[in-house]
Write a protein that binds this DNA or RNA. Structure first.
Length: 155
DNA sequence: GCCAACGTTGGC
DNA sequence: GCCAACGTTGGC
């Protein structure tokens, strides 16, 4: 299985890279978008590397690296009536939503801001900066991944 | 807090 | 199957 590269968004007010550093690993539950789900179910595998992105904050930025530590499994909170992610259409027999588990790898010494990414000519193809792009899980190329990592190590 | 862009829902 | 209405995302 060839390693793939991804970008995952999170609002730091709900779950930040620091939370993940504390937890070491977490189930990426609560995703309720079919495109994002399909990536997790079909394309993400143990060992894939992920850019962790903080959205809805100042500044928005890729703040670190994480790794897929377990393949997709049914999303438990979809079956939890008390959860805000509860979905009556999803059952134990026929779960609709799935999620992978991710583990903390490292925080960037310098977060790579959205603004900075937009300024890189070599990154102008990134999905993240496409107008109206709001997918919370996006594939990135190895080249994009490597460039962001380099920027994150600077200074 | 605003609002553009998007995805989903539901009436027909 | 269309599409208007609605809710959500996420940058600014």
């Amino acid at each position: 299985m060839k390693k793939k590269y991804w970008l995952m968004k999170s609002e730091p007010s709900s779950y930040s890279i620091d939370d993940l550093e504390t937890d070491k690993k977490t189930l990426w539950d609560g995703v309720r978008n079919y495109q994002a789900r399909n990536f997790m179910m079909k394309d993400m595998h143990i060992g894939d590397e992920v850019l962790f992105y903080h959205s809805n904050t100042k500044p928005t930025a890729v703040v670190g690296l994480v790794k897929v530590s377990d393949n997709a499994k049914p999303d438990p909170v979809a079956m939890d009536k008390t959860s805000k992610y509860f979905d009556p259409k999803s059952t134990n027999e026929n779960p609709i939503w799935h999620c992978v588990e991710i583990k903390f790898v490292k925080k960037f010494t310098t977060p790579v801001t959205l603004q900075e990414i937009k300024q890189q000519e070599s990154l102008e193809g990134m999905m993240l900066i496409k107008k109206g792009m709001r997918l919370s899980i996006q594939p990135v190329t190895k080249s994009e991944f490597d460039q962001i990592c380099t920027l994150g190590k600077k200074r």
